[in-house]
C-alpha cells in the first residue's frame, strides 16, 4: 500500500474542469516533483491533497483511508501533512520562533519549553536560528520561506507539500530554499513538490510528473522526462523552459 494514493481525482470550478482523472501513488520517503505550464492544474492538485480544495470526484487515500470523507476529522489529517506556500503565509504578529512553536503547542500539546527547544532545532536546520526573535516582515522572502518550512516541520508531518516554494523569490534567494529542500529529501522526507525549478527536479526527484491542461501527460524518472521525453507536449514545454 502506498502512503498516498490519488485515484481518479477530478476538480471543477463551475463549468471549468481544472483536473481530470489524476492518478498518483507516492511511497514513503519518495520525492515526487510536478512540473507543467501555469494553469495546468498542478497547484490545484496539490491543494486537493490537504483539502484546501475539495475534490469534485475521485478519492485520495492516505495510509489506506479516504481523506475526502473525513468531515470533522479533516484538521487532524492536515496535522500530518505539512504545506509550504508560494507566498510563505507566515503569521505577521508572531515572531519567527512563535510561528514555528505555535501549532505544536496548541495542537500537539507540547509544553512551552519543549516546543521552544524543538522550534530552535528546526530553525537551526533551515539556518534561521539567529532570527528567532525577529518578526516576519523584517526578513527577506527566502528567509521567510525557510521559516515557513521550519513551521511545517515542527508539526512532524509524514509528508510535505510544496506549492511553488521559490516562485515568489528573488533569483538570488532561491538557492538557500532549494538547499533546505534538498537536505530534507536526503533525510528521507516524503515530498510532493510543485515547482518550476527544473534543476531541483532533475537532481532531487525520484519521479517527475508533467501535467498539462488538467491531465497527467507523462510520468517517469528525471532521466526519462528530461533526457528522453516521449510526449510532444512534454518536449515542447521543456524546450521552452530549459
Amino acid at each position: 500500500m502506498s502512503m498516498l494514493e490519488i485515484k481518479n481525482l477530478s476538480k471543477s470550478f463551475g463549468d471549468l474542469e481544472v483536473l481530470r482523472d489524476i492518478n498518483i501513488n507516492i511511497e514513503r520517503g519518495e520525492v515526487v516533483v510536478v512540473i507543467g505550464p501555469s494553469g495546468s492544474g498542478k497547484s490545484t492538485m496539490l491543494r486537493c491533497v490537504n483539502l484546501l480544495e475539495r475534490p469534485t470526484n475521485g478519492a485520495i487515500l492516505f495510509e489506506g483511508q479516504d481523506i475526502t470523507r473525513l468531515g470533522r476529522d479533516t484538521p487532524s489529517y492536515r496535522q500530518k501533512v505539512g504545506m509550504v506556500f508560494q507566498r510563505f503565509n507566515l503569521f505577521p504578529l508572531k515572531t519567527v520562533l512563535e510561528n514555528v512553536t505555535y501549532a505544536p503547542q496548541r495542537l500537539l500539546r507540547l509544553p512551552r519549553g519543549t516546543a521552544h527547544f524543538q522550534g530552535m532545532e528546526y530553525l537551526r536546520k533551515v539556518g534561521m536560528e539567529s532570527k528567532a526573535d525577529a518578526y516576519p516582515n523584517t526578513l527577506s522572502g527566502g528567509q521567510q520561506q525557510r521559516v515557513a518550512i521550519a513551521r511545517a516541520l515542527a508539526m512532524r508531518p509524514e509528508v510535505l507539500l510544496f506549492d511553488e516554494p521559490t516562485s515568489a523569490l528573488d533569483p538570488e534567494l532561491v538557492g538557500d530554499v532549494l538547499a533546505v529542500m534538498k537536505q530534507l529529501a536526503r533525510e528521507g522526507m516524503t515530498m510532493l513538490v510543485v515547482t518550476h525549478e527544473m534543476g531541483f527536479a532533475r537532481e532531487v526527484a525520484h519521479r517527475v510528473i508533467f501535467m498539462d491542461q488538467g491531465y497527467i501527460v507523462e510520468e517517469g524518472t528525471p532521466e526519462e522526462i528530461f533526457g528522453n521525453p516521449r510526449n510532444d507536449r512534454t518536449r515542447a514545454f521543456l524546450a521552452r523552459i530549459l
Binding site: L52, P75, Q79, M83, F85, P92, A103, R106
Partner: peptide
C-alpha cells in the same frame, strides 16, 4: 493566505478565525 496557513497546520475553521484572522 493566513486562513490557509492555519488550516494547513491542522487548526479547524473556528480556531483559524479566532487565532489568525480576528487578531490582525
Amino acid at each position: 493566505g493566513q486562513r490557509e496557513a492555519g488550516l494547513a497546520l491542522g487548526f479547524n475553521e473556528a480556531q483559524v478565525l479566532f487565532r489568525f484572522i480576528i487578531p490582525p
